Simulated assay, not measured.
Amino acid sequence: MEEMAFVKIRHLVTVAMLLSSTLMGCHFESRNPPSSKTLQVSMDEVSKQNSITQNATLMVGNTLKVQLGSNYTTPYRWTADMKIGDSSILKQESHVYVAPSTDALGAPGNEVWTFTALKSGTTTISTNYSSFVGKNTGPVCQYSAIVTVQ
């Protein structure tokens, strides 16, 4: 009889520990959930401006997406590897071209970069939209963002 009481108590303690760790895990996760911020520039803005600067503030561990208009039916592209002022603060994870969602001839898509915030501080990221053919391959548009990680 005494052994059965001990087994019941041990079972209750185990259940209580599992519940408390589950509840605490939810509590801490909800305090600072990972999040993502997106900076966007349309193809219309890219074609009308020769310099674009944006600002973003993130928490350590968060993701920053930069989405810039781009038209792959022309010889113009954004530089795939963004220049990062301080790579100990921000890390480029990826760069992809996202085709337009229409079949319209000459429709622009987007180039999308993903970054991870590594530590607190402020840095800049930048890229150029320029032609990959011909002699004059200077940028038609320069993009930069000032990124603050807290």
Rank of each mutant, 00 (worst) to 15 (best):
V96Y: 15
Y129E: 03
L19N: 07
S126C: 04
S130H: 11
G61I: 06
V46T: 01
S126Y: 00
E3A: 03
L118E: 09
K48T: 07
Y76P: 00
D81S: 12
T73S: 04
M82K: 01
W113K: 00
P75Y: 03
V7H: 11
D44N: 13
K119M: 11
K135E: 11
D86K: 11
M43N: 04
S88T: 12
M17H: 06
A16F: 14
D81L: 09
Q92I: 01
S30M: 12
G106I: 03
T79E: 09
S51R: 14
T63E: 13
V7F: 14
D103L: 08
L58R: 02
V41D: 00
L23D: 06
T122D: 03
P139Q: 05
E29K: 14
K65A: 09
P34G: 13
F115V: 04
S87F: 03
K91G: 05
M17N: 11
K83H: 15
N32V: 15
I125M: 04
S70F: 00
P33H: 15
H27Y: 14
N110P: 02
T14E: 10
E93I: 06
T57C: 07
Y129M: 02
N136Q: 14
R10S: 15
N32I: 15
A16I: 12
W78A: 02
K135W: 08
L64H: 00
Q150V: 07
G121C: 09
E2C: 03
V133M: 15
K119T: 11
M4Q: 10
P33F: 12
N55H: 13
I52V: 04
P75W: 01
A80D: 14
M59W: 10
A104N: 12
W78D: 00
G85R: 05
G85A: 12
V133F: 13
V66Y: 00
N62I: 08
N71C: 05
S94M: 09
E29M: 13
N55M: 15
E29G: 14
K48G: 01
I125N: 00
L118I: 11
N62H: 11
L118V: 10
R77K: 08
Y97V: 04
S144A: 12
S88H: 08
Q142T: 05
I9E: 15
S20M: 15
A56I: 04
M17K: 14
R31Q: 10
V41G: 00
E111Q: 11
Y72G: 00
S120D: 15
N110F: 04
T114Q: 07
K83R: 10
V149Y: 02
L39V: 04
G69L: 01
V149G: 03
T114E: 07
I125R: 01
S131G: 14
V140K: 13
I84M: 07
C26N: 12
S35V: 11
V41P: 01
G69N: 00
V7A: 08
G85V: 08
G61W: 05
T124Y: 02
M24C: 13
E93F: 07
Q92G: 03
K119R: 14
I52P: 00
I89P: 01
E111W: 02
T74W: 00
T57W: 09
